[in-house]
Amino acid sequence: MYYTLTAITENTPGVLYRIASVFLQGQINIERLEVSAIDETRTRSRFRIEFFDTEQHAHLLARRMERLVEVEHVELTQEKDGGETPQNTDST
């Protein structure tokens, strides 16, 4: 199933790396990733990450993400249309 995970985090060095590590540990490929600072003081970031996974794994991933100290809030939504079918990955 196709999921979108939105996370509100601290805007500090290494947060992207830690979040990516959670995906790596679960061997989950990221289909789309957006990160931006979200407030005037640039102290917080919003991550929007899209990926394919089973329901059980996606929820486990979200909970493991919430465990990160820098992560303040996580929301997981399942896309209604199921997203695009995964294509053969191209390293470019």
Binding site: T12, P13, G14, Y17, Q25, V69, E70
Partner: peptide, 14 residues
């Protein structure tokens, strides 16, 4: 060390 320790610590910072 931060890159190495990140997956095996609860938190780390430089």
């Amino acid at each position: 060390i931060i890159s190495m320790a990140a997956p095996v610590t609860k938190w780390c910072a430089q």
